[in-house]
């Protein structure tokens, strides 16, 4: 992006040095994508999918001390059709997962998702029968926030990260996001499809070290446990 100080000649087609067209003073030369992304990133409308403790910290971010309005993301809309940033705040359980997916599908493009807190990102301390071990297994996520629950500052940081991602990725008409992210997601899908044996299970099965007790025997973890 460049702001012109004085009239200058626009470059011509196919690398010719002069086109004969002069831009007036004060003109900004940039690509359309950059302008659109700049507008998008400063007016993110979050859809707070707040289920548990993280939702309270999300409310704290919205209220006076932390004030998410400084980043243009204060317009929390509770209808998914009006939002472009989903913040999954809190653990998502078996009964809730279809609802989450449906709300995600209802949001219009372009849309982004933040997974807020340990529970939404990985299941956190709730490694139990009912809790989905990371919402990214079932919907695409752009930014993860660690913490249980994360401090409001880290939520603001995540919004800023999201903004830089929006600025870099996406095009005016396209909905695909950053090409390298798309690649990463494809790789992840492949890895998960391949991983039929207890990749996670071997790491996690020795809970007796931490005073765990498994009365019904150890359950299989990982893809192979899917019914």
């Amino acid at each position: 992006m460049a702001v012109t100080q004085k009239p200058f000649e626009l470059p011509g087609k196919s690398g010719k040095s002069s086109s004969g067209v002069f831009a007036p003073e004060g003109t900004i030369i940039t690509s359309l994508d950059a302008v659109v992304n700049w507008c998008r990133k400063n007016s993110l409308w979050p859809m707070p999918f707040a289920t548990a403790c993280c939702g309270i910290e999300l409310m704290a971010v919205g209220s006076s001390r932390f004030d998410i309005a400084r980043f243009g993301a204060e317009v929390m809309r509770f209808s998914p059709r009006q939002c472009d940033l989903m913040i999954v705040a809190g653990r998502v359980v078996m009964k809730m997962m279809p609802v989450l997916q449906r709300i995600w599908l209802q949001m219009p493009e372009p849309k982004y998702a933040i997974s807020m807190g340990a529970c939404a990102s990985s299941g956190g301390i709730f490694d139990t029968y009912a809790v989905v071990q990371g919402v990214d297994r079932f919907i695409p996520i752009d930014v993860y926030i660690p913490g249980c629950p994360p401090r409001p500052e880290s939520i603001l940081r995540a919004v800023m990260d999201m903004q830089s991602k929006v600025q870099k990725g996406g095009s005016t008409l396209g909905t695909q996001g950053l090409p390298e992210l798309r690649q990463m997601e494809e790789q992840l899908i492949q890895i998960r499809a391949r991983n039929t044996l207890p990749g996670i299970a071997t790491e996690r099965s020795d809970e007796s070290r931490f005073g765990y007790r498994l009365p019904g025997g150890e359950s299989l973890v990982g893809r192979s446990e899917t019914l």
Binding site: T51, C53, I56, M96, F126, T128, Y129, A130, Y212
Partner: peptide, 30 residues
């Protein structure tokens, strides 16, 4: 209801009495 049922009570049967404090915290989180 049950849209946030995450097995607190089952988890309590697998953590020791001091460890479970971290879990009960998240019960009434306000």
């Amino acid at each position: 209801i049950g849209y946030l049922h995450s097995g607190f009570e089952k988890l309590g049967e697998h953590l020791n009495l001091n460890q479970y404090v971290t879990v009960v915290d998240r019960k009434n989180y306000i």
